[in-house]
Simulated assay, not measured.
Amino acid sequence: MIEVKALSKQFGAQVAVNNLSFKVDSGQFCVLVGTSGCGKSTMLRMLNRLIEPSQGQILIKGKDVTTQSPEQLRRRIGYVIQGMGLFPHRTVQQNIATVPKLLGWKKPEIDARVTELLTLFKLDAATFASKYPHQLSGGEQQRVGVARALAAKPELLLMDEPFGALDPLTRELLQDELLKVQQLLGITIIMVTHDLEEAIKMADVIAVMDKGTLLQLDTPEALLRNPKAGFVQELVGGSERPLRLLSTKQVSQIMTAPIAQATHPLPCIHAEASLREAMALLIWEQVEQLQVVNVAGQTVGQVSLHDLLQQGARV
């Protein structure tokens, strides 16, 4: 668990972060969201002591981060930034091996970990391990950056606008991959973004910040249903809120039993797709029902326009 107590940071007369207090449970995905300059990145960098707080306390699993050196602390915390930050003169293998090597891991153990992570992020080790960063696409570089951050099996992963520089399609693919990896590893992640749509998709809890203060910490659904008046309410939008609410649930959560024998083939949607995606497909296909399939392509249920409309009052 991460616990932040009355944390503040001043740069001269400017207050970047003001008296923040919040908790993030182990295994949660927490997203810090807000406008540029609201203190999100400063908050993130105080967690691994890249920036020292002016006052307050940070506890990781009950242990004050100031009781150990910044170098030791950072070796236990993965850190991913928007520009990837890969060492240009090192291969993919050498980049990912950076922290395990510093920790004294043996070469066979390092090699196995590099292969494991490349496979996890759908990069063939035989092809990519010997490549240099300039030989990779932006999406591949970002995959390697996240793999490097996870190499030493950290208890916490910090991410500062990790997908901001990527094209929309690559960004969406990497978001999906990261969610699968996070669920597989059970790692705690704290991520900064200015993109509310990304926050809703990724987060277990969203922390909304403005002018250095924490305005609301809630689940995506609770945030959209009951935003605090003022900045938070403006951030989550008015007419867009119903669609954003549909993004917080999966088709599998409301699907019904499949039709025994449909009179004509129905368009298919994956059980893990969001209700928002289901609504978009229903409109696009101009139908009132969709066939729901699992990862193997097997029919597991159906979802209808009626089902989605009923969710409007209680999503």
Rank of each mutant, 00 (worst) to 15 (best):
W105K: 03
Q94M: 10
K101G: 13
A112D: 11
I51L: 14
R76S: 13
L123Y: 00
G85Y: 05
C38N: 04
A125K: 00
G83P: 09
H134A: 14
T127W: 03
I81V: 15
H134G: 06
P53N: 05
I77R: 05
L150Y: 00
Q57L: 14
Y79N: 06
L50D: 03
K122H: 13
E71R: 15
Q141E: 08
Q57T: 15
G56A: 03
L59H: 08
N95Q: 08
L118P: 03
G85I: 07
R148I: 14
Q57V: 13
H134K: 12
I60V: 15
I110L: 04
R113Q: 10
T98C: 12
A151E: 02
T119W: 01
E140N: 06
M84W: 14
Q135M: 13
Q93P: 10
L150T: 00
R76K: 15
G104S: 06
Y132F: 14
L117E: 00
G138K: 02
K107T: 15
G85D: 04
A152F: 10
Q72Y: 11
K101T: 15
A125R: 00
S54Y: 01
G39Q: 07
A147M: 04
H134D: 12
I60R: 06
T119M: 06
K122E: 14
E155I: 13
L123F: 01
D64S: 12
A97T: 06
V65Y: 00
G85E: 02
N48E: 02
E140H: 04
L157R: 05
Y132I: 10
G56T: 08
H89C: 11
E71P: 12
T42I: 12
G62A: 05
E140A: 03
L73I: 07
L102E: 12
A151M: 07
D64M: 10
P100S: 09
L120Q: 04
D111H: 10
V146G: 01
D160M: 08
Q142E: 13
G85N: 08
I81M: 14
I77Y: 07
I58P: 05
E140Q: 15
R74P: 12
R113K: 14
V33T: 07
Q68H: 14
R90P: 12
A126L: 13
N95W: 03
Q135G: 09
P108R: 11
K101L: 13
G78Y: 02
Q55K: 11
G56L: 03
I60S: 06
S69M: 11
Y132V: 09
K61R: 13
G37E: 00
Y79A: 05
I51M: 11
T66F: 12
S41W: 00
V31K: 04
W105Q: 03
Q82M: 12
P154Y: 01
L50I: 10
L157G: 09
L118N: 01
G56H: 04
P100W: 02
V80E: 04
A126E: 14
G78A: 04
M84D: 11
G138F: 08
T127C: 10
M46P: 02
Q55G: 13
